[in-house]
């Protein structure tokens, strides 16, 4: 019973916060609702026994991606009036995207319940064994059957990262404000200060 209650709480929270993401007036609030949606989706993952995916969802999306999102949105000055003005222009495109998503969802669920996919059938026969740890089964699949796909996904991400760095890297003409950390660490009080007791009326030479 607790399982059912938990499912309905998590599911209702996901849907409600998902709706609030697109209806919230303030973009910062939108991102915060998005984070709540991620968090509750992780809760749903735990309920179906995919605790590893749930933890990764929280670590990667909530812990890293959404923080950067929030970071950017907080620093941007967004003109709401301007954004609303574009609403009519982008409405047909939005409807098109929504239709594509809906049809994909129907196709996916249809294929899943027809049992034509090998992800596991609707009657629960092909699902992962209970008691077998998530991490173990995912690891065995990723580093066994899908090794090359996994490695190439890693390479694609690496290329994307290098690309982003190359695009944003600017060669500075003159080295201004450059700090030599080793030099700073090596510096001792004796190098910078002198302790003297000058005679009255006489200065000191530096």
């Amino acid at each position: 019973m607790i399982h059912t209650i938990a499912f309905y709480i998590f599911a209702a929270m996901v849907i409600a916060s998902g709706a609030l993401v697109i209806t919230a007036r303030n973009p910062v609030h939108s991102v915060l609702w998005l984070i709540l949606a991620f968090f509750n989706a992780a809760g749903l993952m735990v309920l179906v026994g995919a605790e590893f995916i749930a933890m990764l969802l929280v670590i990667v999306y909530v812990g890293a991606v959404a923080v950067l999102f929030l970071f950017v949105v907080m620093m941007l000055e967004i003109d709401f009036a301007e954004m609303r003005a574009g609403f009519v222009k982008y409405f047909p495109l939005g409807v098109l995207l929504a239709l594509i998503l809906v049809s994909e969802m129907i196709l996916g669920i249809g294929a899943y319940s027809a049992g034509s996919m090998h992800l596991g059938t609707a009657d629960g026969v092909g699902t992962p064994l209970m008691g077998e740890s998530n991490i173990r089964s995912i690891g065995a699949l990723l580093y066994g059957r899908y090794l090359f796909l996994f490695e190439s996904a890693g390479l694609v991400l690496l290329v994307a990262m290098v690309g982003a760095i190359v695009l944003t890297h600017r060669e500075r003409g003159t080295v201004r404000g450059h700090q030599n950390i080793n030099k700073q660490v090596r510096r001792r009080p004796g190098d910078a200060t002198v302790n003297t007791r000058p005679e009255v009326g006489k200065g000191i030479e530096l």
Binding site: M55, L56, V58, G63, V67, N134, I135
Partner: peptide
């Protein structure tokens, strides 16, 4: 089973 990952996940929430 995912104890350490849980700790990592929760500590990444702390920043919010």
């Amino acid at each position: 089973n995912v104890g350490l990952l849980y700790i990592l996940a929760i500590s990444s929430l702390g920043v919010y």
